[in-house]
Structure formats: structure tokens, C-alpha cells
Simulated assay, not measured.
Amino acid sequence: MPGLNSLEDSGNLRGLPWMLAISQVAGIAMVVMIGVWLNTYLGGFAWDGGPKEFNLHPLCMICGMVFLYGEAALVYRVFRNSRKLKVKLIHAGLLFLAFFAIIIGLVAVFSFHRANNIANLYSLHSWCGITTVIMFCFQLLLGFLTFLFPGARSSLRSTYLPIHQFFGGAILVLAAISSISGINEKLFFVYAKDPKNPDKVTYPQLPGGAVFGNVCGLVVVAFVFLILFIIQRSEWKRPTDPEEEALSIHFRRVVSQGSEDSG
């Protein structure tokens, strides 16, 4: 009965708007707090080869790999009743915005290292980070070819979908790990004890910048946990649309027939 199904769906979705709202508050707070931390305690931003240029790296990576990537994961929960192609395009658009933010963040850190004769990719943070970026790029490419490319078969899509979903969550977890390890690494660099200046404030004494940085890391973890909680709830997933699947199959048949006729 359609009316009964509607009531059941309404009951299952009762907590979704609240969780989405909380996740958005956490995500916006995360981006704002990272910006404030870098601007207030670490000198701000510039493209000059110095520490201010480095500050663009954590800002862009968290905006791209955590916030925008997390927002892209929520698209299918937010637009549950919109046309699937529209939702796919929004999902892909957010991922491509994340990709551009990641590129800027990587260029900033490598440019800073080159200008200051610092080795690249030597820390555990950098290894986790570059692994996350590589996985993200493969996820973006394979997702585009499988779910947006018109010639992809429905059997391929259904087979790859659970793999895509698993690695989507795994990449978000790796992004969180890379972010909090990067924040911690930066705090050690900034507040490490200087043997030549014993009176310098150190990390264990928790100056304001260290406290704020630690809180930023906790907010990153909270945002990622909220995203994972929302996307793993089966009752909040977008319902399948048999009509859209039938249109997709018909479209592929038309394309295939056109190719045969042109041949």
C-alpha cells in the first residue's frame, strides 16, 4: 500500500535531517577553525615560498579531502527524491572541486619544501596523505567511467558499486588520519623545545595555538564520524528507481543500435 510505505519511509527518515544538520555544523566549524588556527596562530597565508605558503596546504587539503569529499558522500542522502542523473552530477561536481583544492594544497607544500630545501614525503603523515590522494584519484576516475560514462553496463555498475562505496569510506578515514597526523606534526614543529632558548613555550605546556590545533583535530574526527554514520545507515539510502534503470537500459540499447547502423 503506497500510503503505508510512505508512513514507513517517514518513520525511517525521522533522524536523517537532524544528523545532516549536525554534520553541516561540524563541517563548517572544521573549515572555519582550521582557517582561524592557521591565520591567528601560524601567521596567515601567502604565496611566497615561506611558512605562510605552507599554511595553504592544510587548509586546502582539509577543505578538499575531508569537507568537500564528505559533502559529496552525503549527496545521495540529501537529494533522495531528485532525478538520479542530477544527483550524480552534483556528486561528481563536488569531487572535482575537491580535486582542484587538493592540487592547490599539494603545489603549496611541494613549492614550500623546494624553496626551503626540505625533503618531500619523508614522514608517516606524508605517506598516508599521498596514499589518500592516489586512492582518491583512482576513485574519481573509475567512478566517472562506471557511473557517468554512457556506455557502462548496468551489470558492471552493480558489481562495482559496493567496491566504490567501501573505498569511498576508506578514503574518508585515511583523509582524517592524514589530517590529524599533519596537525600534530605541525604542532611539534612549531612548539618543539629549542635547546638554544629554554624559555620558549613548548608543546607539553599547551599554549593557545596547541590547544586550538588539538581541538581542530577532534572536530575533523567528529565530522568524519558523522559522515560515516549517515552513509552506513541502510534505511537512509536513496531508494532504487526502476523507471530510471529502465530508461538507462533503453538509452544504452539506442546507443548500441546507432553504432551498429553507422557501421
Rank of each mutant, 00 (worst) to 15 (best):
N5Q: 12
L7D: 15
L7W: 06
S10V: 00
N12K: 11
L13G: 00
L13R: 03
W18M: 08
W18H: 13
L20V: 15
L20F: 15
L20C: 12
A26N: 03
I28V: 15
A29W: 15
A29Y: 11
A29H: 07
M33I: 00
V36E: 13
W37K: 06
L38D: 08
L38V: 09
L42Y: 13
F45P: 10
A46F: 03
W47D: 14
W47H: 11
D48W: 08
D48I: 03
N55Q: 07
L56E: 00
P58G: 07
C60A: 12
M61H: 10
M61P: 01
I62Y: 06
M65E: 03
V66S: 12
F67Q: 05
G70A: 13
L74R: 09
V75P: 00
V75I: 15
Y76T: 05
K84P: 00
L85S: 11
V87E: 01
K88T: 06
H91F: 12
L95R: 11
L95Y: 09
L95K: 07
A98I: 06
F100S: 08
F100A: 14
I102V: 14
I102R: 03
I103K: 08
I103H: 03
I104E: 07
I104C: 10
A108R: 04
V109M: 03
F110C: 05
S111T: 14
F112H: 13
H113T: 01
H113R: 03
A115M: 06
N116P: 07
A119S: 12
N120C: 06
Y122V: 11
S123W: 10
L124V: 12
W127C: 01
C128Q: 09
C128N: 10
G129C: 05
T131H: 05
T132Y: 00
Q139H: 14
L142A: 13
F144S: 15
L145C: 09
T146Q: 09
T146K: 05
F147D: 14
L148N: 14
L148G: 12
R153G: 01
S154N: 11
S155K: 12
S155T: 11
L156K: 05
L156V: 14
R157F: 02
Y160E: 08
P162S: 13
G169F: 04
I171Q: 05
I171R: 01
L172G: 09
V173H: 01
L174Y: 01
A175Q: 08
A176T: 11
G182E: 06
G182W: 06
I183F: 10
I183M: 13
L187N: 05
F188H: 12
F188S: 11
F189Y: 14
Y191I: 12
K193D: 07
N197D: 15
N197V: 02
D199G: 08
K200V: 07
K200N: 04
V201Y: 03
T202Q: 02
Y203A: 05
Q205V: 05
Q205K: 09
Q205C: 01
G208I: 06
C216M: 07
G217T: 00
V219R: 11
V221P: 04
V224W: 01
L226V: 09
I227A: 01
I227P: 10
L228H: 04
I231K: 00
Q232C: 14
Q232I: 14
S234T: 09
K237H: 07
P239R: 02
D241A: 08
E245S: 10
A246I: 05
F251E: 15
R253Q: 08
R253F: 03
S256I: 00
S256P: 03
S259N: 01
S259Y: 00
S262R: 15
